[in-house]
Design a protein around this nucleic acid. Structure first.
Lengths: 346, 346
DNA sequence: ATTAGCACTCAACATCAAAGAGTGCTAATG
DNA sequence: CATTAGCACTCTTTGATGTTGAGTGCTAAT
């Protein structure tokens, strides 16, 4: 339940949050009154701050310290107070320039993006590649390696080519393999990988009866080729930037956070969970379910890729992040990535 | 210059080093005399320790503290005192079991090894894959993708299959591509990648005169295919184990070390530098040239791969590592990896 | 040659006082 | 009646001070 704040309350919460984001220290009433954000005496500000604290938006580390915003306070700030900065032309260009080079493969785009997000924010940049299962089938090739080994090369309509080595029981000639691929490339064309899997199983059922050795072999091979791991590709950059955040001066905290970074599945779940709707989504501190990450905020956005598939990108940093600057940056990066990928592979 | 130590001196240095490795704290004379390694009073030990300190093998953090071994002291210990433990049967089996699963690809072996080294040592495990340039050519395939795009699939005699997408100016038919590969597979067979590059350049010179369009196209394509980046593949695991070392409780140290871990080229140079001869090599603290790594020791060993190529593996940890246990483990791991790889691809 | 004994050094720890930042409450103010 | 100056109070931070204990080097006794 969100309690409403008076105009003045908002102003003061705003002042506390900005100051806290800038310094990382608890903010006192005097500090605010001096900075002429508002023309109020310290005493008046104290009164209001006490009210806001009662609502749960602020807290005091101890009696004689200033206030720091709670996660709820930051949430209120983000939802009801924050107006994000507009990016300058220069900044926009600098984002776009990242994708200027010709011949960027999907993997390059991912790497560049995570690095961009990290450099811009000075926190940790992360991007999850479009899900493997959503890739659209374009072509498969089988190359004979040694006696009983075949290399399957899967070429999606867009995205990274993947190889898989398959061991076979009987030896197959390159000629037979050509026939297989021709057949497969026909029946699987333009399906998503998920559908490819289904299709193969269906075809296999049909084949059972028809007993066509060639077809059933082809299907068996392709099934192996597509059984490959479904791990999401996660690209992460600037992990070590958090060393520079004063709130992570505690070894234990850093340790647990880094261990979390190592578990890619946590990151994937985290981002997936954050992204429900369209556009920028923000998760603040304890709002996410992962113990290890509850000192962090995540600013994330989905990016799209034609109608094919989509992934997620974002920035992970301390709850005291500069939302005002980072939100529009993440947003513009997501839009740019979407645009670039659409352009590259219609 | 290595100064010689008396029998007694050796015993005491040994005692100090063992104790220091076990506790990480400066070691006092009483501690040693109590532990009945030797039957000497604290006072006698003090005298000897003062001598050893003068030689530069021990140092005192401050007057009223015990001694810790210097890097030189550890070097002396490793060279002249240390007798490594023999691995138990169980330990050997546990190492071998890592490579038991069928169908391990090169990349799996690398991953498993780095993880093995890290788990066993409780420090950071690292392995550098055999250099790309040393791989032996087995086969190349060209797959037509879209109008002006060709996928080159390079299959080395052993090692990881690599793809490269090549943009061409003219459209080439799959039929032509087949001819290319047939030609290339013939002339390049069994060369190392380095030699492949040379050969292509030579052939191109010859071709210039003969003006055979087909051949010159094939050569141009293959040149592009093999121009790919020569980055060494580095597999590293257990980076975060060093959080548990008391000597890395200082944020700054951890920070610089991790930044070094991120720069793969430092790691490659470091390992390459350590490995000069055969067998286990050890670099202690300041013996290596990289500022960021001078609080660390590296225990490394080359591994071989038939006559084809070889790489390096090892453990990075604090100078106060358990050399006695880790040295034989690294050694046995290197031997096992060599054996496995030889068996897999003769 | 070895060692017990002793004076000495110095980090680590605890104790204590003072300083300073910030608060909440009350009474005065426009 | 909202605002604010003033003040007593709280609690962290800092620095000074003293104490403890581990460890040393030296000397004299064994």
């Amino acid at each position: 339940m969100v309690e409403r704040l008076s105009k003045r309350g908002k102003n003061i919460l705003q002042a506390v949050v900005s100051e806290y984001i800038a310094t990382g220290e608890p903010v006192g009433s005097r500090t605010i009154s001096k900075k002429q954000y508002l023309d109020l005496s310290a005493a008046s500000i104290r009164n209001v701050m006490a009210d806001i604290e009662e609502m749960g938006y602020l807290s005091q580390p101890h009696t004689s310290a200033g206030r720091i915003p709670t996660d709820r306070g930051l949430r209120y700030y983000v939802d009801c107070i924050l107006t994000v900065r507009k990016l300058t032309k220069k900044e926009k260009q600098s984002i776009e320039r990242t994708y200027r080079p010709q011949n960027l493969q999907l993997i390059d785009i991912m790497k560049e993006t995570s690095s961009l997000l990290s450099n811009f924010s000075q926190y940790t940049g992360i991007i999850i590649a479009p899900k493997f299962g959503n890739m659209i089938f374009e072509q498969i090739e089988f190359v004979k390696l040694r006696k009983n080994q075949i290399l399957a090369v899967f070429i999606p309509k867009a995205g990274t080519v993947r190889n898989k080595i398959i061991e076979t029981e009987e030896e197959l000639s390159q000629d037979e393999l050509h026939k297989f691929t021709k057949y497969l490339n026909e029946i699987l064309s333009d399906l998503s990988l998920k559908d490819v899997r289904k299709k193969i199983i269906n075809e296999m059922k049909k084949e059972k009866n028809m007993c066509n050795w060639l077809l059933s072999q082809a299907l068996r091979l392709s099934q192996e080729a597509f059984s490959s791991d479904m791990d999401d590709d996660v690209f992460i950059d600037g992990k070590f930037n958090i060393f520079d955040c004063p709130e992570f001066c505690d070894m234990e905290k850093v340790k647990t956070l880094f261990r979390a970074f190592e578990k890619k599945n946590i990151l994937v779940k985290l981002l997936d969970q954050v992204i429900q709707g369209e556009g920028i989504q923000i998760s603040i501190g304890t709002e996410n379910q992962f113990q290890e990450m509850q000192e962090c905020s995540i600013i994330a956005s989905p990016y799209t890729w034609g109608e094919y598939a989509s992934g997620t990108l974002g920035v992970i940093g301390p709850t005291r992040m500069n939302y005002c600057d980072i939100v529009p940056m993440v947003d513009y990066t997501a839009r740019t990535v979407s645009k670039i990928m659409d352009a590259k592979y219609q």
